[in-house]
Write a protein that binds this DNA or RNA. Structure first.
Ligand SMILES: [Mn+2]
Ligand SMILES: [Mn+2]
Ligand SMILES: [Zn+2]
Ligand SMILES: [Zn+2]
Lengths: 136, 136
DNA sequence: CACCAATCTGGACTTTGTCTAATTCCCGGA
DNA sequence: TCCGGGAATTAGACAAAGTCCAGATTGGTG
C-alpha cells in the first residue's frame, strides 16, 4: 500500500474529516513518508514548491488529525512534538544524539507487573521509549 | 531520610557540584518534596519569600544537576519538562487531564521482547509512561 | 583586605505553539 | 450562472518555555 494524494481524500473522509487541499497535502506529507514529523517539518514539506499553507493551518490540521485518530502524538523530545502516521499500537526507539525516532513493533513486546489503576481511571495509552546513544 | 537545607551541601558535593546558596535552595525544593517539578515551579518555590534566584540560574542549575546525575528529566507533557529527584530506575503514571505525575516502582515491572540494539549503540534509559484519564 | 575565578543576573532573543478577527473558499439552491 | 453562508484558511499578534550573553556579584584564598 502506498499513499498518493488521490488516496488521501478517502482516508480523510473515513476518519470524518472534510478533505480540503491543505489537509490533503498535510496528510500526504505524513503518510507518503511514514515518518515521524514535527509541525515545523510538515510546514516545510508542504510549502517547498511555493507557499501554500499557513502555520495556523498546519497546527490546526495536525490537532484535528490527532482528535480524529488519524495520527498519533509522540513526546520524546523536550522541544517539540512529533506526529506519527502509524496508529497501530507500537513503541519507539529514540536516538538521543541525532534525534532519529523509529518504531518498535508492539507485537513482540510484553509488559507485565503494572500496578492496578486508581478507581474510575482508564488507560489512554502506554508509551515505551527506549533511549539509545552511540557507545562512548 | 528527610532532606534539610543542611543536608543539601553534602549531597551536592557528593555529585561533584559546588554548593552555592542558589543550588542548595533549588536542590532543597526538589528533594524535600520528592516531587516532579517543572523549572517554573522550582522558580516559584525558590522565590516565595522574596526574589532570590533568577530564571537563568534556575535553568542553568537544573541542567547542571541533570548532567551530574543528581536529578532526572521526565518528558511527558509537550509543553514542559519535569525534573525528578528520584534517580532510581522507575516508571511514570501520568494523569493527562490534571497533569499529575507519579512514580511506578520499576522493581515489579517486567519488559520483555525488546529488539536487539543497532550495533555500537547503548541504552541510555527505558521510559515507560502509562497515560491515564478519568473514565468517560 | 584584595584578588579573581566561579557564579549569578537582567534582559534580549529564539522557538514552539495559540489565538483572533478578517478573508477566502466552496457547495447547494434559485 | 449567480448568490448566500457556513466552513476553512490566513496573517500576524501574542504567550510560554527555554537559551544566551555581557556585565555585576560573590566568596574563598593568599
Ligand atoms: Mn503543491
Ligand atoms: Mn530563602
Ligand atoms: Zn511511531
Ligand atoms: Zn519519577
Amino acid at each position: 500500500m502506498h499513499y498518493t494524494r488521490d488516496n488521501m481524500a478517502g482516508l480523510l473522509r473515513s476518519h470524518d474529516i472534510n478533505p480540503t487541499h491543505q489537509r490533503i497535502e498535510i496528510a500526504h506529507a505524513l503518510f507518503s513518508r511514514q515518518e515521524h514529523l514535527s509541525a515545523d517539518q510538515v510546514m516545510a514539506i508542504v510549502n517547498t514548491r511555493h507557499s501554500e499553507t499557513s502555520k495556523a493551518t498546519v497546527y490546526n490540521t495536525l490537532k484535528l488529525f490527532l482528535e480524529k485518530g488519524l495520527v498519533r502524538e509522540v513526546i520524546v523530545d523536550p522541544s517539540k512534538v512529533f506526529f506519527d502516521p502509524n496508529t497501530d499500537p507500537h513503541h519507539h526507539l529514540y536516538e538521543v544524539d541525532s534525534g532519529k525516532l523509529s518504531d518498535i513493533d508492539a507485537e513482540h513486546i510484553q509488559i507485565s507487573g503494572l500496578p492496578p489503576l486508581p478507581p474510575g481511571m482508564v488507560t489512554e495509552g502506554i508509551d515505551l521509549i527506549v533511549r539509545i546513544r552511540r557507545k562512548a
